[in-house]
C-alpha cells in the first residue's frame, strides 16, 4: 500500500511541552476490541476457577467467581475512561504516548533513538482490522512503546513517518 507522506498532521512545534500536547485518540473500534480481550481474559479465569468444584466447597467457588465477576465489571466500567486517556503525539524530534488511569504515564522517545518499527496484529485486533505500532529503541528498560488501536492506513502512516524521521534514513 502506497502512502503519501506529505499530508501528515503534525500538531506540534518543538517548543510545545509534552504536557501541553494535543494527544491524538486511538481508533474507536479499539475500545470494543479491548473490551472483548478483557472479557475473554476474565471468562478464561472464571472457567479455570470452576476447577475449585473438585474440592466440593461451594462457598469458595461462589466467592472466587463472584470476585472475578465484580473485578470484570469494575474493569470494564473503567475501560472507556482508560481508552479516552490513551493517545499519541508527534513533535519535531520525538514521539510521545500517554496511557494509564491510576498511574498515568507519558513516554517520549526521540526519533534518532528508534531502532525498529513493527506493525502487529493479534487474532482479536485482526478481526477488527486494527493494528498496533511498536516502536523499539535501545534503552535498557522501556525499550518498546506500543501504540494500539490503529487502522491499517493510520498505522502505515505512523510507521512511515517515524521511519522517515530517523536521521540518515530520509527517502
Amino acid at each position: 500500500m502506497d502512502v503519501t507522506l506529505s499530508n501528515y498532521q503534525l500538531y506540534l512545534e518543538n517548543s510545545v511541552p509534552v504536557e501541553d500536547l494535543h494527544f491524538e485518540p486511538l481508533d474507536k473500534t479499539y475500545q470494543r476490541a479491548f473490551m472483548i480481550v478483557v472479557s475473554l481474559i476474565y471468562l478464561g479465569l472464571m472457567a479455570l476457577a470452576l476447577l475449585l468444584m473438585l474440592f466440593e466447597i461451594p462457598w469458595i467457588l461462589a466467592g472466587v467467581e463472584g470476585t472475578l465477576l465484580l473485578a470484570c465489571v469494575i474493569n470494564l466500567s473503567i475501560l472507556p475512561k482508560a481508552f479516552r486517556f490513551k493517545g499519541y503525539a508527534f513533535r519535531e524530534h520525538d514521539i510521545s504516548y500517554r496511557r494509564g488511569i491510576i498511574f498515568p504515564k507519558t513516554t517520549t522517545i526521540p526519533y534518532d533513538r528508534i531502532q525498529q518499527v513493527s506493525l502487529n496484529q493479534n487474532p482479536v485486533t485482526k478481526y477488527f482490522h486494527l493494528y498496533s505500532v511498536e516502536v523499539v529503541n535501545g534503552a535498557q528498560s522501556l525499550s518498546n512503546l506500543t501504540i494500539p488501536g490503529m487502522t491499517e492506513e493510520r498505522a502505515l502512516q505512523i510507521k512511515n513517518l517515524v521511519i522517515a524521521k530517523i536521521p540518515d534514513n530520509h527517502e
Binding site: V117, L119, N120, I163, I166, D168
Partner: peptide, 22 residues
C-alpha cells in the same frame, strides 16, 4: 527504501522494519 523488512506470523501478524543505518 533503506530498510530491512520482516513479515511473520499466521494468526498474529508482525511486520518489523529496521532502518539499515541502525
Amino acid at each position: 527504501d533503506g530498510n530491512l523488512i520482516f513479515q511473520r506470523g499466521l494468526i498474529a501478524h508482525d511486520t518489523v522494519t529496521i532502518p539499515l543505518t541502525k
